[in-house]
């Protein structure tokens, strides 16, 4: 449990976009998915989930729709928009470049 580190600032948005990019999901679904991630990799504070969802929707990267869920009740589903897809790609890209750069520095130090 203690080995898990808290999620870096700003990565939650990227994670949410990533989750929704695979399949549209409602808030609870995304939370469950985050929980799975939490259990294995990083610790996500569930309290920031809904503010993040609404922020992403406000920015136009997600759109939402009330649909029937797997339990038969209406739930608010989030979809990735075209802008959201672009944003996700950009964030992945910059993340990879950052990670690559950090790795490069560490490798250099190790040599």
């Amino acid at each position: 449990m203690n080995s898990r580190f808290p999620i870096p600032q700003g990565t939650l948005d990227m994670l949410i976009l990533q989750i929704v990019s695979l399949e549209s999901a409602h808030g609870y679904g995304i939370a469950q998915r985050l929980e799975q991630i939490s259990r294995s990799v990083v610790q996500v504070n569930q309290g920031s989930l809904y503010p993040a969802l609404h922020r992403l929707e406000q920015k136009g990267w997600l759109r939402s729709e009330w649909k029937q869920s797997e339990t038969g009740r209406e739930a608010k589903f989030y979809f990735l928009t075209a802008a959201g897809r672009k944003q996700l790609a950009a964030e992945k890209n910059s993340w990879e470049r950052l990670a690559g750069a950090v790795r490069l520095i560490f490798n250099e130090g190790g040599r």
Binding site: N45, Q46, G47, S48, L49, Y50, P51, H54, R55, Q58
Partner: peptide
């Protein structure tokens, strides 16, 4: 508790709006 309190989360979402 997981959500960090209903009042707080509501406030935060409202801030987003």
């Amino acid at each position: 508790l997981e959500l960090g309190g209903l009042v707080q989360v509501r406030e935060e979402v409202r801030d987003v709006w």
